[in-house]
Amino acid sequence: MIDMSGKIRIRVRLGDYYMTVSEVVRSLEIATVCEDALCPNIHDCWSSKTATFMILGDICTRGCRFCYVKKGSPLPPDPYEPYKVLEAVKRLGLDYVTITSVDRDDLSDGGASQYVKTIRLLKSYDPSIKVEVLIPDFMGREDLLKMIVDASPDVIAHNIETVRRLTPLVRDRRAGYEQSLKVLETVKRLNNNIITKSSILIGFGEEFDEIIEAMKDLRRVGVDILVISQYMRPSSQQIPVVKYYSIEEFKALERIGYELGFSYVISHPLARTSYKAKEAYEAVRRVRE
């Protein structure tokens, strides 16, 4: 529900499942993007006993202007982190695991090997577990993207975040619109079977036509799942919201997304990359079969 100011209203009653997730991730000391991004869906997701794990620590080397994740100089990667993720998956009984990370421009492999270890560990524990990773751009390096692709996650997501014109305003200067398109294109070229996904946040001041252009660009590089969602300013430290879009506008974008050929489109103010990820994955599998 959206109130008069355009802000989302979140009903909060922390029940048993919520507290179970909270206890598991805290006791194992695994970061979650649900917390670190002040995700508005945390109540919904944790109450359904699901979470998105954030590997490679909780401090990002980049300074995107919409993001609430802590920025600075991160600690060295925790060698036990993949095992902690596995333990959390066991304790929560997850059969669909979503993993993301901070950007690690300080590491020679950008953190790719930690992704690989985590994916392989989960798959070796139970090959039927589906793994979705939301990756950084790895500076566009094909060798690092190949490492991720070769670990065979079921879905690889990488977010374009905004339209071409606003990319320098919204994202860190080391990120780039073309670079993100190249990441998604490279993943598909390396393994056409891997489902790809990308998200656009809207509300930064983009024109409607610019959103359509970004959608076309994502389709051109073979993206299967498109997520469009409302930017919500986490705190006064991030850039302001220029526009709150109506549900009707989100529905119109969803319709256009399907017309452009995406296999699955989630277009909703509260949608986030990992939101209802399993449903999106299963829908694409059905389209392919």
């Binding site: 009653r13 508005p40 919500m232």
Partner: peptide, 21 residues
Amino acid sequence: SSGDQLFEIEIEKAVLVIESE
């Protein structure tokens, strides 16, 4: 009763509607 709405907090990102536990 459990589930009744008690109060609302506006934060930058959203409005939190706090329900009784």
